[in-house]
Write a protein that binds this DNA or RNA. Structure first.
Lengths: 178, 178
DNA sequence: GTCTATAGTCCGATAGAC
DNA sequence: GTCTATCGGACTATAGAC
């Protein structure tokens, strides 16, 4: 990350990264499948955290509630890392390669959540919809969280996004203008 | 596509593709930014089709209705190409590289739709939510459409997915088990 | 069209930890 | 003795510079 900020993502070679870490290029590829993965190394843990939280929600909760509870369980973790999250987010947004990787990670996560919902007895297509909808809410909330000068929590942003989604999905002919 | 089917995506080099087309490797990169793009060449037209359709829906329609109308406008186009769509979909699903590209294309499309909604007067975050939700519905519907032995239309699948989403998003404590 | 850097693979060698 | 981490060299394909 330091190197990427110093000289830019494209201008940083795998050799550079390895050298800075006191290793060789081969060793790098031993730990990471490709260059992009260095920015996503924590993602397994992130997935586990969320999946566990979904699994732990009472069965009385609706599928969507369970999904949102899963994402919200990361709120504390993110709270301490807002500046880093902001930087990382900018870096990803600026590099299509990284954005692609980010998207496939989010999709893998959504798939894992779908599986947990199915374990809980949710029918397949409802599970998919709940998990994809939850992901959309998370993305909107995360974006708001990153840029919010008032620094509300991620959970706060997710609750707001959820209420808004309910209005958007409702069959009402007219939608409030703000 | 022929080459990819013949010898597999990974085993096909850009040189192979260029040779088959009677061109050189450099010329290939003149037309496509990278190897993956050959499978997404029609995507600009796809985006235009949908964006135009969203723009053309009456303002009385809700944002989500407009988004869905956009996606549904591709139903006829897809109807004639079900076998090809199926093959392409399998190819993409089998190759993470291609899946990444597919996802970023879908995200670009969602972004374009969001912009059109904003032009129509929908507030930014509602626009994002409507467009992301619409994308989720499309994905679920497309998946069902591809595998449906009864060969219902894409529009049919989208209507079904939408009804299901409404149940999923509703605040009901209990959700129907099928 | 030429030339070149970089990413990423394959096979194998080596060394330390437990 | 097995497991795991590092390293080396040769190699191909992608992709960018010119």
């Amino acid at each position: 990350m330091a190197l990427f900020v110093e000289r830019g993502y494209d201008k940083t070679t795998v050799g550079d990264i390895a050298a800075r870490a006191g290793l060789t290029e081969r060793t790098f590829f031993n730990h990471f499948a490709d260059k992009r993965e260095v920015l996503f190394s924590g993602s397994d843990q992130f997935v586990k955290q969320i999946v566990d939280a979904v699994r732990a929600t009472p069965k009385s909760a609706s599928p969507l509630d369970a999904v949102l509870a899963g994402y919200e369980s990361t709120s504390d973790m993110f709270a301490e890392r807002r500046p880093f999250a902001r930087k990382r987010s900018e870096m990803i947004a600026a590099h299509p390669d990284l954005l692609e990787r980010e998207l496939i990670k989010m999709m893998t996560l959504a798939g894992a959540i779908t599986n947990v919902l199915e374990e809980r007895g949710t029918p397949a297509s409802s599970a998919t919809l709940a998990s994809e909808t939850g992901a959309a809410i998370f993305r909107v909330a995360f974006e708001a969280w990153i840029h919010d000068p008032k620094e509300h929590s991620l959970t706060f942003q997710m609750r707001a996004a959820r209420r808004q989604l309910e209005r958007v999905v409702g069959r009402a002919k007219r939608v409030a203008r703000s």
